[in-house]
Design a protein around this nucleic acid. Structure first.
Ligand SMILES: [Zn+2]
Ligand SMILES: [Zn+2]
Ligand SMILES: [Zn+2]
Ligand SMILES: [Zn+2]
Lengths: 132, 132
DNA sequence: TTACATAGTGTTATATTATAACAAATTTAA
DNA sequence: TTAAATTTGTTATAATATAACACTATGTAA
């Protein structure tokens, strides 16, 4: 059963929910939404989320404690993630910009630390909210 | 009393603690540390933290829910913050790199959204941890 | 097939992080 | 000196996340 798509039952349920969502979902919103499918307790949700993040199917928006499905191909297994976040409507959009991704992946710390991964969050007011 | 340095009593106590710390401090660690100074409840800590973040004296490390004092001059009032984070020892270092800061401040989203602010977190293993 | 290791599940309890709401005191500015 | 704005103190509670344990399902290899 797991072989078909390498996601377990709970992982698939939770991924589907996040993937269909147009906005970031929080863990307890997810929990509430999947209770009818038999997922009843926080650890079930957090374990699935952890795995999905680990495998790069979803990303955590750290400034919001919320999760979005990966929409990019630049961020292989979440090593190079960038998002634009509207401070008014809370919309989150994954940024797929090869130049940006390369620039940051190649960035070297003056103090010699070698980076394996980065996460970048941009904040502003989206076009839609500016009209209002 | 507030005029001298524009920090209130609680704000100053909490800023001093964070500023002296060599590692990011969490809200409840701070709360515990300042109880002898009369700060007894979470809201007192969170209010001071909010204000200090707002005025750019400290930054929140989103991936760790922890706070560090600002060590940079590139990040005026926290509009352009970047950190290097060791995944082994949890050390956090604020990155002051004018080029990086300019590059990201000038980054324009393809979808036309204008950014006011960004936060970047790099992850890796620091030099000290690599030796071990 | 059996046996083993790895990964996933269900469950209860609890830890950690953060805010709501309200009353009082302090500071600032008109 | 009065009124607004900010800060403080306090209690309670909301929201986010993990520990620990017993059990089940799956993949691998003798
Ligand atoms: Zn992605
Ligand atoms: Zn918006
Ligand atoms: Zn700074
Ligand atoms: Zn380290």
């Amino acid at each position: 059963m797991y072989k078909e798509n390498n996601l377990s039952k709970n992982q698939q349920i939770i991924f589907d929910l996040i993937n269909k969502s147009s906005e970031p979902l929080k863990a307890y919103t997810i929990l509430f939404s999947v209770q009818k499918k038999g997922i009843k307790a926080p650890p079930q949700v957090y374990r699935a989320l952890d795995k999905l993040v680990e495998t790069g199917k979803i990303h955590k928006i750290e400034s919001k404690n919320a999760f979005v499905a990966c929409r990019s191909s630049n961020c292989e297994i979440s090593k190079a993630t960038a998002f634009s976040i509207c401070e008014s409507c809370e919309m989150v959009d994954e940024i797929s910009d090869t130049k940006l991704s390369k620039y940051l992946s190649g960035f070297n710390h003056k103090k010699g630390m070698k980076f394996k991964r980065f996460n970048l969050e941009f904040f502003g007011i989206c076009k839609k909210c500016k009209k209002d």
